[in-house]
Amino acid sequence: MIAIIGLVLGILLGIWLNPTVPPAIQPYLPIAVVAALDALAGGLRAVLSGTFDDRVFVISFFSNVLIAAFIVFLGDQLGVGTQLSTAVVVVLGIRIFTNVAAIRRQLLKA
Protein backbone atom coordinates (compact mmCIF):
# COMPACT_ATOMS: atom_id res chain seq x y z
CA MET A 1 0.00 0.00 0.00
CA ILE A 2 2.65 2.40 1.08
CA ALA A 3 4.56 1.51 -2.09
CA ILE A 4 1.65 2.70 -4.21
CA ILE A 5 1.46 5.87 -2.14
CA GLY A 6 5.18 6.32 -2.79
CA LEU A 7 4.66 5.86 -6.52
CA VAL A 8 1.85 8.40 -6.61
CA LEU A 9 3.89 10.76 -4.47
CA GLY A 10 6.83 10.49 -6.88
CA ILE A 11 4.59 11.17 -9.88
CA LEU A 12 3.02 14.17 -8.19
CA LEU A 13 6.44 15.44 -7.18
CA GLY A 14 7.62 15.10 -10.78
CA ILE A 15 4.61 17.01 -12.04
CA TRP A 16 4.87 19.64 -9.36
CA LEU A 17 8.60 20.28 -9.54
CA ASN A 18 8.77 19.79 -13.30
CA PRO A 19 12.54 19.45 -13.25
CA THR A 20 14.67 19.70 -16.34
CA VAL A 21 16.86 16.69 -16.96
CA PRO A 22 20.54 17.59 -16.96
CA PRO A 23 21.96 16.98 -20.41
CA ALA A 24 24.58 14.60 -18.98
CA ILE A 25 22.01 12.00 -17.93
CA GLN A 26 19.47 12.67 -20.65
CA PRO A 27 20.26 9.58 -22.73
CA TYR A 28 20.19 7.29 -19.67
CA LEU A 29 17.02 8.35 -17.91
CA PRO A 30 14.54 6.58 -20.22
CA ILE A 31 16.51 3.34 -20.03
CA ALA A 32 16.83 3.71 -16.26
CA VAL A 33 13.08 4.17 -15.98
CA VAL A 34 12.45 1.01 -17.97
CA ALA A 35 14.98 -0.89 -15.86
CA ALA A 36 13.30 0.34 -12.69
CA LEU A 37 9.94 -0.76 -14.06
CA ASP A 38 11.43 -4.20 -14.58
CA ALA A 39 12.70 -4.28 -10.99
CA LEU A 40 9.27 -3.17 -9.79
CA ALA A 41 7.55 -5.94 -11.73
CA GLY A 42 10.05 -8.46 -10.36
CA GLY A 43 9.42 -7.20 -6.84
CA LEU A 44 5.67 -7.51 -7.21
CA ARG A 45 6.06 -11.00 -8.53
CA ALA A 46 8.23 -11.86 -5.54
CA VAL A 47 5.59 -10.48 -3.19
CA LEU A 48 2.97 -12.72 -4.75
CA SER A 49 5.14 -15.79 -4.63
CA GLY A 50 5.97 -14.93 -1.07
CA THR A 51 9.63 -14.49 -1.71
CA PHE A 52 9.90 -10.75 -1.37
CA ASP A 53 13.12 -9.58 0.18
CA ASP A 54 13.68 -5.88 0.56
CA ARG A 55 17.45 -6.22 0.32
CA VAL A 56 17.15 -8.10 -2.94
CA PHE A 57 14.59 -5.62 -4.19
CA VAL A 58 16.77 -2.60 -3.44
CA ILE A 59 19.86 -4.19 -4.90
CA SER A 60 18.06 -5.40 -8.00
CA PHE A 61 16.45 -2.00 -8.45
CA PHE A 62 19.70 -0.11 -8.40
CA SER A 63 21.77 -2.71 -10.21
CA ASN A 64 19.16 -2.86 -12.97
CA VAL A 65 19.20 0.90 -13.33
CA LEU A 66 22.95 1.21 -13.18
CA ILE A 67 23.70 -1.67 -15.50
CA ALA A 68 21.16 -0.43 -18.04
CA ALA A 69 22.59 3.07 -17.90
CA PHE A 70 26.12 1.70 -18.12
CA ILE A 71 25.31 -0.38 -21.18
CA VAL A 72 23.86 2.68 -22.89
CA PHE A 73 26.87 4.72 -21.86
CA LEU A 74 29.19 2.06 -23.22
CA GLY A 75 27.19 1.95 -26.44
CA ASP A 76 27.50 5.71 -26.76
CA GLN A 77 31.25 5.49 -26.33
CA LEU A 78 31.49 2.72 -28.91
CA GLY A 79 29.26 4.55 -31.36
CA VAL A 80 26.45 2.01 -31.18
CA GLY A 81 24.44 3.85 -28.54
CA THR A 82 21.15 3.71 -30.41
CA GLN A 83 21.40 0.00 -31.11
CA LEU A 84 22.45 -0.89 -27.59
CA SER A 85 19.66 1.27 -26.15
CA THR A 86 17.23 -0.65 -28.30
CA ALA A 87 18.77 -3.92 -27.17
CA VAL A 88 18.46 -2.98 -23.51
CA VAL A 89 14.89 -1.83 -23.94
CA VAL A 90 14.00 -5.05 -25.75
CA VAL A 91 15.57 -7.23 -23.07
CA LEU A 92 13.96 -5.28 -20.26
CA GLY A 93 10.67 -5.31 -22.08
CA ILE A 94 10.80 -9.10 -22.39
CA ARG A 95 11.62 -9.39 -18.69
CA ILE A 96 8.76 -7.09 -17.77
CA PHE A 97 6.42 -9.18 -19.86
CA THR A 98 7.68 -12.36 -18.24
CA ASN A 99 7.25 -10.93 -14.76
CA VAL A 100 3.81 -9.56 -15.47
CA ALA A 101 2.82 -12.90 -17.00
CA ALA A 102 3.96 -14.65 -13.80
CA ILE A 103 2.00 -12.17 -11.69
CA ARG A 104 -1.03 -12.73 -13.84
CA ARG A 105 -0.73 -16.50 -13.46
CA GLN A 106 -0.35 -16.19 -9.72
CA LEU A 107 -3.34 -13.93 -9.30
CA LEU A 108 -5.71 -15.20 -11.94
CA LYS A 109 -4.23 -18.63 -12.63
CA ALA A 110 -4.61 -17.82 -16.30
Partner: peptide, 24 residues
Protein backbone atom coordinates in the same frame (compact mmCIF):
# COMPACT_ATOMS: atom_id res chain seq x y z
CA UNK B 1 11.38 -1.02 6.72
CA UNK B 2 10.94 -3.01 3.53
CA UNK B 3 7.64 -1.29 2.80
CA UNK B 4 9.21 2.10 3.28
CA UNK B 5 12.12 1.16 1.06
CA UNK B 6 9.80 -0.10 -1.63
CA UNK B 7 7.78 3.09 -1.35
CA UNK B 8 10.92 5.16 -1.64
CA UNK B 9 12.07 3.29 -4.74
CA UNK B 10 8.60 3.57 -6.23
CA UNK B 11 8.68 7.30 -5.57
CA UNK B 12 12.03 7.53 -7.37
CA UNK B 13 10.59 5.56 -10.28
CA UNK B 14 7.50 7.74 -10.44
CA UNK B 15 9.55 10.88 -10.26
CA UNK B 16 11.99 9.75 -12.94
CA UNK B 17 9.23 8.52 -15.22
CA UNK B 18 7.28 11.75 -14.93
CA UNK B 19 10.39 13.79 -15.51
CA UNK B 20 11.27 11.76 -18.56
CA UNK B 21 7.76 12.02 -19.96
CA UNK B 22 7.82 15.76 -19.47
CA UNK B 23 11.22 15.94 -21.08
CA UNK B 24 10.09 13.92 -24.07
Amino acid sequence: RSQLLAAFLCAILGFAATTQIRQT
